[in-house]
């Protein structure tokens, strides 16, 4: 299964634990975690499957945190899909 963000949106990052994301396609504004924002940015850059995403996020994540975040990835993707930010196909 591949994932992508077809139209890259806009971020407002105040350096806090969450980030504001403006979806250019829907015009909706979302409050997302900084990790989810990172996933959105990666998928806006290129289409990836979960394994490719794990590989892509690994360099930016503390090694201790990686297993937990990898485990959380499917749920984060499911939520981003339900919000129509991420598309799968």
């Amino acid at each position: 299964m591949k994932y992508r963000v077809e139209v890259p949106g806009r971020f407002h990052d105040c350096g806090e634990e969450s980030v504001v994301y403006f979806d250019l396609q829907s015009g909706d504004t979302h409050l997302v975690s900084d990790f989810a924002a990172h996933i959105i940015a990666l998928l806006a850059d290129r289409t990836m499957d979960i394994q490719e995403l794990v590989t892509a996020v690994a360099p930016d994540i503390e090694a201790d945190d990686l297993p937990a975040l990898t485990e959380a990835l499917p749920d984060i993707l499911a939520e981003l899909i339900s919000l129509e930010i991420v598309e799968q196909g």
């Binding site: 407002h12 990052d13 105040c14 806090e16 969450s18 980030v19 504001v20 504004t29 409050l31």
Partner: peptide, 11 residues
């Protein structure tokens, strides 16, 4: 309060 959350609340 968080600026990020304030952004969304102000919106």
């Amino acid at each position: 309060r968080s600026k990020t959350e304030s952004f969304v609340l102000a919106a």
